[in-house]
């Protein structure tokens, strides 16, 4: 009965719900849409005003209005050197994620399951380090990197990005190992498998999806990471996040200012890979950002 009355009066209620849902969607994607269109030199302000006004530095100016042109996207690709930035970031992310996985997978397994020495210390140290702002490390790292020829090298920046991802990688993998039912481990032990065999033949295979998710998540963190790459990359290894702010001006056109519209075009290009990955691992985002404590369902 209650079900029926509920179904009979959806009209106003559910229309209102949809209106609010759509408004909230606008709030979520409007700024991103503005960025995408700004890159095409399409200013939506005239839609609201009938007048093409844009304020620059607090002062209303006549705005370009709607004059679609792909020129800023071409600029973003040529002047901001977007493909180069993309290659740099991918290489740095690949180095950083490989190192994190090489050091992290077995460690996460041990931290999840085994009574190894120093387990509590390392687990909680990783957690505490997650709280340390990169700015607490950046000056000594900067000095160390410049003195040892690691500044502006792919290896150096890749290692430095461990600051951004390592805690998350180990904690998240540890969560995936803990999620494997205890019975699985017991069964393997009953068949006489050694701990190493249990890890290699059973646990590792079961967490491969977890490793993929963790790597993708780490990729997004590195892709969007700004402070470390801003300070430790130079003209050679500049990443996307740094490039969308400053362009690649130093090496290609040092006298050329990257325009606001170019920044928007580049910013939108940079957003596309990130959103694809984010939506692909949407179910696991809560888990990733909470270091594996939230459930993934």
């Amino acid at each position: 009965m209650g079900q029926n009355t509920k179904k009979r009066r959806p009209s106003l209620g559910s229309v209102m719900t949809y209106v609010v849902l759509v408004l909230a969607a606008l709030y979520s994607f409007w700024p991103i849409l503005v960025m995408a269109l700004e890159g095409y030199q399409i200013d939506l302000a005239p839609l609201f005003s009938g007048k093409a006004v844009r304020s620059i530095g607090g002062v209303p100016f006549y705005s370009g209005g709607i004059y679609p042109t792909p020129i800023h996207y071409i600029d973003a690709i040529k002047i901001v050197a977007f493909p180069r930035l993309l290659g740099n970031t991918s290489l740095i992310a690949a180095i950083s994620i490989s190192v994190a996985l090489a050091a992290g997978v077995t460690a996460a397994y041990a931290l999840a399951r085994l009574p190894v020495r120093g387990k509590g210390f390392i687990t909680y140290t990783l957690l505490a380090l997650r709280a340390v702002s990169p700015f607490a490390l950046i000056v000594p790292l900067y000095i160390f990197f410049t003195r040892n020829g690691l500044w502006d090298t792919y290896l150096g920046v890749g290692l430095a990005e461990e600051v951004a991802i390592l805690s998350m990688v180990v904690w998240m993998l540890r969560g995936f190992f803990t999620d494997i039912p205890k019975e699985v481990y017991d069964a393997a032990a009953v068949f006489g498998a050694s701990e190493w065999q249990i890890f290699r033949r059973v646990a590792l295979r079961m967490v491969i999806p977890g490793i993929v998710v963790t790597s993708l998540f780490a990729f997004v963190l590195i892709w969007n990471e700004f402070p470390i790459s801003e300070i430790l990359t130079g003209p050679v290894t500049k990443t996307v996040a740094v490039g969308v702010w400053s362009g690649l001006g130093e090496t290609t056109n040092s006298f050329m200012e990257v325009s606001f519209d170019d920044l928007n075009a580049a910013g939108f290009l940079a957003w596309i890979p990130a959103i694809i990955v984010i939506l692909a691992i949407r179910r696991y985002l809560a888990k990733g950002y909470s270091l594996g404590t939230a459930s993934s369902k």
């Binding site: 909230a24 969607a25 979520s28 994607f29 409007w30 700024p31 991103i32 503005v34 960025m35 700004e38 200013d43 939506l44 302000a45 005239p46 839609l47 609201f48 005003s49 007048k51 006004v53 844009r54 304020s55 620059i56 530095g57 607090g58 209303p60 705005s63 997004v220 892709w223 969007n224 700004f226 996307v240 996040a241 740094v242 969308v244 702010w245 606001f260 920044l263 928007n264 910013g267 940079a270 957003w271 990130a274 959103i275 990955v277 984010i278 939506l279 949407r282 985002l285």
Partner: peptide
């Protein structure tokens, strides 16, 4: 609703700048 999460903080700084989103809101 997840869209903003994929945006790099440095880009968020540009998105909400006076000449982007606030332009429309002002108008």
């Amino acid at each position: 609703y997840v869209f903003p999460l994929a945006t790099a903080p440095i880009v968020v700084g540009t998105l909400w700048s006076p000449s982007s989103t606030w332009d429309d809101i002002q108008s």
